[in-house]
Computed example of a mutant assay.
Amino acid sequence: MAMVSEPTHDVTAAPIEKGSDVGEVSQWRLMARRFKQSKLAVTGGLILLVMYAIALLAPFLSPNDPTAVDSNLKNAAPSKLTWDGGLAICGQTQTLNEENFTFEYKVDCNKASKVEWFGKGYEYKILGLIPSDRHLITAKEPTKLMLWGGDIDGRDVFSRTLAGSQVSLTIGLFGVSVATILAAVIGTISGYFGGLVDNLLQRAIEIILSVPTLPLWATMAAVLPRDMTVTKRYFLITIILSLVAWAGLARQVRGKVMAYSSADYVAAARAAGSGHSRIILTHMVPNSVSHLVVVTMLAIPGTIIAETSLSFLGIGMLPPAVSWGVLLQDAQKIQVVTQYPWMLIPAVAVILAVTCYQLLGDGVRDAVDPYG
């Protein structure tokens, strides 16, 4: 009896989708998936994106020139809004209290001025390039829209807070970026080569870490000339903040590199004839990237607080520069805080930014260990 063989089918393996194998791409996807599970971290990241977008569009969103002084609005309370066939601002009259020599304001909504959307105001440059005088919201002259009141010189606190975000938010990014680059280079060199190089670098790091951070920052910032331009001072303050921040991160990178240097794939790379630069750039640095990202995220709020503290003490950013620390100089007296509480609004902005960065850093830290 003849045996009838069943037809055979050519079974071929399904093509592997690019990035689906266990590798760099799939691991980053796994990190992103785990990060999305942290609602607080995602919320903090979204709030930070909104804050940076506001900082980028600060001149357009500001109804008044943040540097314009108006003696008729010294310590003016926030404008009272009303509805008069459209959104309007109640008028207010300034009077001097001769008993305590403070200005008082009487609100009169019968003399309201309508608010204009996309109206004309002070001139500025979009992204520092394109001249414009259009603003999201303005008020008809001579009335000024003071959403968060005025300071001791009659300047708009709302507009100054938006302008200050451009300095306070970016100086943290730039300062930590410089510190991260220094830490990655020095920490990798120290951990990879070891020996005398490692001993010299670690002793230098220990000396830096033994000095109290804030007094060291204050000393370096205090020696800067007070008559230098805002741009130069911004650049130098960024360098000062980064010169200390790199030391602790460099020690952490050194520990990671020392652990990686004894791995089998590094030994195989050496046996294959790879040079030091190729091993460092191909194996050491990429494996430390996730740790660097986490530490960088957690270091940015510390840098923001450092700049705010230095500016608050009068040795960081100085007028005419505008930062949150500079704005808080006007709130040093308890009398100002009790009578004009809106002067503390820049402190709320600092707290919000720092808290969001900490939530974001915690979420990234949990996401980089997706198998934990």
Rank of each mutant, 00 (worst) to 15 (best):
P341R: 06
A32T: 14
L310T: 09
L352D: 07
F235L: 06
K114R: 14
S311L: 05
D153S: 14
L40N: 00
K36I: 10
S132Y: 04
Y371M: 11
L49I: 15
L327W: 04
I126E: 03
Q202P: 13
V211T: 10
H276D: 14
I89R: 06
D369Y: 04
T296K: 04
Q166F: 01
V197F: 10
A331R: 03
P319Q: 01
V115P: 06
L87V: 03
L200G: 00
G195Q: 08
D330E: 06
P7A: 09
G316S: 00
I345H: 02
T95N: 13
T8G: 15
D156H: 02
N72L: 13
I240Y: 13
S309W: 05
N75T: 08
P142F: 01
Y357F: 05
G86N: 02
A321W: 00
I351L: 13
K120H: 15
C90K: 07
S261A: 14
G164I: 12
D153C: 04
S5E: 14
L249E: 15
L40P: 01
T180C: 14
G128W: 11
L327I: 12
D84L: 00
G314V: 04
V350T: 00
M317F: 01
Q332Y: 10
Y260C: 08
V230L: 10
N287K: 09
A13Q: 07
K144A: 08
F101D: 07
V337K: 05
D369V: 05
P7K: 12
R29Q: 11
A14E: 15
D156A: 01
G187N: 08
G85M: 07
A267S: 15
A76H: 03
L318C: 12
I300F: 05
V293T: 13
T282F: 12
V230K: 06
S210T: 15
A53N: 09
G372F: 09
I279G: 12
M31I: 08
S323H: 03
E24D: 12
V4P: 14
M343C: 14
N110S: 12
A271I: 10
G175F: 02
D369F: 07
G45L: 11
L224Y: 13
R233D: 08
A184I: 06
D65W: 01
I16Y: 00
S26E: 13
V11K: 15
S38P: 04
L292V: 14
Y340G: 03
A139W: 07
F101Y: 12
T161F: 06
E123P: 08
V293K: 09
K144T: 08
E123M: 13
K140L: 15
P15A: 12
G194Q: 00
A272K: 11
G172I: 06
K106G: 07
C356F: 08
V253E: 05
A272F: 02
V354L: 10
Y340Q: 05
